[in-house]
Simulated scan of single mutants.
Amino acid sequence: MPESHHDKPKQEVSIETFAFKADKLLPNNPELPAVLYKGAFQEHPESAEQIFNDNGWRNSWVNGVFSYHHYHSNAHEVLGVMSGSASLQLGGDTGRRVEVSAGDVLVLPAGTAHKRLTSSQDFRIAGAYPGGADYNTRRATPDDFAAALPEIGQVPLPDSDPVYGEAGPLLRVWGVRG
């Protein structure tokens, strides 16, 4: 059977995980690490949004990343780079700078701060949320921090990996399945 451009990667690509502690304005996630899939969609980066949707991560959009620290305290988020490249800051000012390019996928657990530092002109990402969850956008303020803390722990774990579906590494990394 011929391969369609919407097929999932044939094998798991290398993944990196990043854990971040809260600072005074950004909660991050005390339990779950951010997960970076390098080159997951190397062959077909433009399919990211459709693959996320097919794997139950919906309420999707295509755009860029804000140039200020922000996070979603009521939903996990997946970002798939469809074109171009960018340098992103994860976890706040004391967090980690991550370079992403077309085909890379980043999964951010609820509360994980992120912002765009630099990007190529053609940088575009697809974003989506498990089960099509509605998401909020919080910023680095004391009021948002206080409101976010109780919300983060209430966000359910996803039923599927946004890249690999029900058998993906995210589920093992986040302890959904053994």
Rank of each mutant, 00 (worst) to 15 (best):
L108K: 04
S120C: 15
L36V: 08
S67A: 12
L117V: 12
P45Q: 15
I15G: 00
A113K: 07
R172Y: 07
H114G: 13
I152Q: 04
A133V: 00
H72L: 11
P33A: 07
V155I: 12
G132M: 07
G131L: 09
T118D: 13
T141I: 08
H114M: 08
D159C: 14
L157N: 06
H44I: 13
S119R: 11
Y71T: 06
L170D: 01
K38Y: 02
P156I: 09
A40H: 06
F66Q: 15
H69C: 09
E46C: 06
A48I: 05
D7L: 08
Q50Y: 15
T137P: 01
G91Y: 01
N136M: 10
V173L: 07
M1Y: 15
A113H: 09
K115Y: 14
V163H: 01
N59I: 06
E49I: 11
W57K: 13
L149M: 07
K24H: 03
W57T: 06
L106E: 06
S14C: 04
N59D: 14
V13I: 04
V81D: 03
H70W: 12
A140S: 05
G39V: 03
S73C: 14
A133I: 02
P2G: 11
E166F: 07
V173T: 12
A148G: 03
L79V: 10
Q42K: 14
S120V: 11
Y68T: 11
L157Q: 09
A148E: 04
A126Y: 01
L149E: 09
D7Q: 12
F52K: 15
V65S: 03
D93A: 05
A113S: 15
T94Y: 01
E31I: 02
N63E: 14
N136V: 09
F41I: 07
A102Q: 03
G131R: 08
Y71A: 05
E3S: 12
I15Q: 00
R138P: 00
H69K: 06
A48L: 08
H76G: 01
G153V: 08
K8R: 15
A110Y: 08
K115W: 10
E31D: 05
T94L: 05
T94S: 12
V105D: 02
P2C: 05
W57M: 11
T17A: 00
G175M: 01
S160T: 15
E3W: 07
S160P: 13
Q121S: 10
V173D: 05
R96V: 01
H72M: 06
F145I: 05
E16L: 08
Y129M: 03
H72A: 05
Q11K: 12
D93G: 07
L108T: 00
K8I: 10
P33V: 10
G92A: 08
E16M: 08
V62C: 09
A147W: 00
P158L: 15
A140Y: 13
H114L: 13
E12V: 08
S4A: 14
D122V: 03
R172N: 12
Q154T: 14
Y135V: 06
G178Q: 13
K10H: 13
R124I: 04
L36S: 02
G95K: 01
H6V: 14
V100F: 00
G178W: 15
D143H: 10
H44F: 15
S119P: 00
A126D: 01
D93L: 11
V105T: 11
F41L: 14
Q121L: 07
S4F: 11
E46F: 04
D23W: 02
T112E: 05
R96N: 07
R96Q: 15
L25A: 04
S47I: 10
S14R: 04
E77C: 07
